[in-house]
Design a protein around this nucleic acid. Structure first.
Lengths: 147, 147
DNA sequence: TTCTAAATGATAATAGTTATCAATTAGCAT
DNA sequence: ATGCTAATTGATAACTATTATCATTTAGAA
């Protein structure tokens, strides 16, 4: 399991390698992306960042998330009922478990979907490149009525 | 495999059972939902419907999709890069295969995720209610350069 | 046939995201 | 350390997808 610090350095290096400046705003955004436990939305990231950067623009956060996504260093998840969510720690397809009450997202440790992927390729004649697997339910906190 | 006609009748009956009027607009929307092969967006549905109902409002389509969704008769899929998609034939969790070029969606025939669901419940202590599984790739038509 | 609450159509409003442009600044060159 | 400049930011307008509002229409019960 790679550390948050390692992920931070990887993303910052990727920005440098692609000719981008390492601004204080970018450092702050990447830090939140890799430290976050729950795949935050842009709005979440902006709200957290305002503590240390009260004048940072929401547009700056959006622009930088798009940039980091274009470098393949963040996984973007869309849900039907709201804004997109971002995972800076595992920027590749992996399962999620989403609480439908508090919207928390956790990453369970499940077996690879490679077998299914092969079955799908045979059945559909698609060339499969990636996948998405989410389970939706109620977390133990919300079951206990803490939220 | 249930027929489109049967699905149509089921949805219409559900609307009646819930005290809703069966307007010509609703009949047209439900028909497109059950006849569609590729999980259309609201915009798609509206574009198709305009042929026979040139004055139907986009808001009417949106309102009715929301209504049918609230009755549990349509599956709603959100993607990070655009509008939501709707499946009126299988309004319950099932796998999808999405072409990243032409955006076509097909439903492969895969084994149940019940085993994984149990593993997830044990590991995360969530009560799992449903799931989402999508594979992303390139369909055979787009591989052949037809699109 | 009449009546009325539900539904529609048109459009304003909202939320999430992207584009624009003047001002600022990271970092390279000296 | 200083100067320079293209990249970046901040503020906000604009865009897209969706929802809210309200006058008008209509499905269907009586």
């Amino acid at each position: 399991m790679i550390t948050h610090k390692k992920r931070f350095e990887t993303i910052i290096q990727k920005l440098k390698d692609n000719g981008h400046k390492i601004t204080p705003q970018r450092i702050a955004i990447v830090k939140i992306l890799v430290d976050s436990e729950g795949h935050p939305s842009v709005e979440n990231i902006h709200a957290q960042i305002k503590t240390d950067f009260p004048t940072m623009s929401l547009a700056t956060v959006y622009r930088n998330i798009v940039l980091i996504k274009s470098l393949g260093e963040v996984l973007e998840l869309g849900f039907p009922d709201g804004s997109n969510r971002y995972d800076g720690n595992k920027p590749y397809p992996h399962p999620h478990v989403v609480c439908i009450k508090c919207k928390k997202i956790v990453d369970p440790d499940l077996d690879s979907l490679d077998e299914m992927k092969k079955e799908v390729e045979v059945e559909t004649e698609f060339k499969i490149l990636n996948h998405r697997l989410d389970f939706f339910g109620i977390c133990s906190d919300c079951q206990a009525g803490k939220v």
